[in-house]
Design a protein around this nucleic acid. Structure first.
Lengths: 245, 245
DNA sequence: CCGCGTATACTCGTCTGCGAACAATCGCCG
DNA sequence: CGGCGATTGTTCGCAGACGAGTATACGCGG
C-alpha cells in the first residue's frame, strides 16, 4: 500500500473523488465540492487546486478529456479520471481509514506550552474555548440532523465523527477546568509560584530529569561533557557546554 | 489578537518556547525539544528549523545574540528571544488555547470519501484501525503513567489530551463497526447495492439535492444559467487565446 | 444597448516546507 | 596514529501551497 503518495495534498483526494463522478474542469470540481459541503472538510484554495490537478495529470491519475472553448476565451480543460487514478483513490482512502497517523492539532500545541501562562489566565481562556465549542457543536448537531433528513447516513459519517470528537474535547476541557478552578490539579501551587518567581523552572526541571543537571540560576548551558577548548583562541563565551540530553 | 501571525509554522512556537529558556543556536533548540519529547508533538524537520528561525529573526521575534566559531566549523549563530518574541509567544498560546479552529484530520478526509469502498472492505479496514489505536493507546497510557512519576502534570497535559481524544476515536470506531457488522446502519443495503451497480449514484444524489440537476449521462456543463450554446461571436484576437505574459 | 456588478475561470509570483547534501569534529578500534 | 563511522551543525535547491491579480461573460437597470 501506498509507498509514497505522488500527490500528497488532501485536495487531491477531493479532486479524485469529484472527478470519479464524471469528467469536469477544475472550476467545476470546486463547484461540486462546494455543493457537497466538501469545502468544510478541505478548504479549497484556488492556487492549490490548479497545481494539484496539474500534478495529478502529470502522474497519470487524471487525463485531459477535452478542451472546450465556449464563447468566452480562456480555454477550459476538462479532465477525466484514469484507471490509475481510480486505483490511487481507492488505495488512498484505504490507507486513511486503516492507518491512524499522529496528528498535530493546534490545541495540543497550545497545551504543550501552556506553562508559559498563569493558571488564572488559562482558566479564563479555557472558558472561552468551552463556550465556543459548545456553541459550535450545537450548531453542527442541528445541521447534521437537518441533513440527515435527505442524505444517506454514510455520506454524513465524517461529520458525525467530527462532532463526536468535538464533544469529547468539550468534555475534556470541562474536566480540566473543574480541576483548575477547585484547585485539585496536582502541582497547581507550584505552577502558580514558578510563574511568580523564576518563570522557566518547570521547563528546566522537565529537561533536567531527562538526563542531566542544568546550571542553577542561569538557565543557559545544558548537560554533559563540554566541548574541548582545542583551539585556545578567544573564548568570549565563558562556557558552552555542549551535548544533547 | 494576532491578526495574521507573522510566522505560522508551529515549529516556530516550539522554537520561541525553547529560546525563552535562554539563548541558543538552532541545533541546540532541536536538542532541547527532543530532550523534552517535543518532537512527538511537532516533528522537527531540519530544513524547516533554519527557515523558521530566520523568519522569526526577520520579524524581530528573535535576535542574534552571538556568533560563535569553534575550530573550523561553520559559524554557529546563537539567538535570544526579544520582547516582541516573548509577547508573540504569549499571544500565540492564548489564541491556541482559547479559539477552537476547524482541523482536518486525515481520518475525517478518508471518511468523507468512504462511499468509494464497499461496506465489507470498510469493516476490515476499521478493524485494522481499531487494533492499531488500541495498541497505541495502551502504550501511551503506560508512557504517561511512567512520566507522571517525575514530571509535573501540567507539562504532560497535552499528552493527556491526546490520549483522551484517541480513546474517544477508538470508541467511535467501535460503535460504527458494530453498526456495520450487525447491519443496523441505515442505508447499508443501498450502499452495498449502489457499489454493485452504478457506483456514483449516491454522490450525485447528494449533489443533486443541494440544488442542481446535473446533465444526465454527460455531466458536463453544470446547473441552469448560462446554458446557451457557443456564441459565434468572434471579436477576439485570431489565434492563441491570451496566454498572458 | 451601454455600463456596471457579479459569477466564472484561470495564472502568476512569492514564500514556505523540507529532503538531502555537505562539512567539520569526535571517538574509538586496531 | 590513522582511518571510518557517528555526531554536530548548517546550507541548498526544488517542489508545493496559496494570496492576489487578471480577464471575460452574463444579467440587469437605466
Amino acid at each position: 500500500m501506498a509507498g509514497r503518495r505522488r500527490v500528497r495534498n488532501m485536495l487531491g483526494l477531493a479532486v479524485l473523488s469529484a472527478v470519479s463522478a464524471g469528467p469536469m474542469h477544475p472550476y467545476e470540481m470546486a463547484a461540486v465540492m462546494r455543493a457537497r459541503g466538501k469545502d468544510r472538510d478541505v478548504p479549497i484554495k484556488w492556487g492549490s487546486l490548479y497545481t494539484v490537478v496539474r500534478n495529478l495529470e502529470r502522474h497519470g491519475l487524471l487525463a485531459v478529456a477535452d478542451n472546450v472553448r465556449q464563447g468566452g476565451r480562456p480555454e477550459r480543460t476538462v479532465y477525466r479520471i484514469t484507471d490509475a487514478g481510480r486505483a490511487e483513490l481507492g488505495d488512498w482512502v484505504r490507507e486513511l481509514i486503516a492507518v491512524p497517523e499522529p496528528e498535530h492539532p493546534r490545541f495540543e500545541a497550545g497545551l504543550s506550552v501552556i506553562a508559559a501562562l498563569t493558571p488564572d489566565e488559562v482558566i479564563a481562556l479555557l472558558f472561552d474555548r468551552l463556550a465556543a465549542l459548545e456553541r459550535d457543536n450545537a450548531e453542527r448537531r442541528l445541521a447534521l440532523a437537518a441533513a440527515a433528513e435527505e442524505t444517506p447516513r454514510i455520506l454524513l459519517i465524517h461529520a458525525e465523527y467530527d462532532l463526536t470528537m468535538r464533544e469529547a474535547e468539550a468534555r475534556w476541557v470541562r474536566v480540566l477546568l473543574a480541576e483548575l478552578t477547585d484547585g485539585t490539579l496536582p502541582g497547581l501551587a507550584e505552577w502558580r509560584e514558578s510563574r511568580a518567581t523564576g518563570k522557566v523552572s518547570p521547563e528546566l526541571a522537565a529537561l533536567a530529569d531527562r538526563g542531566a543537571a542544568p546550571g542553577p540560576a542561569h538557565p543557559r548551558g545544558r548537560p554533559g561533557r563540554r566541548s574541548r577548548p582545542d583551539r585556545p583562541d578567544r573564548r568570549d563565551r565563558p562556557d558552552r557546554p555542549d551535548r544533547r540530553g
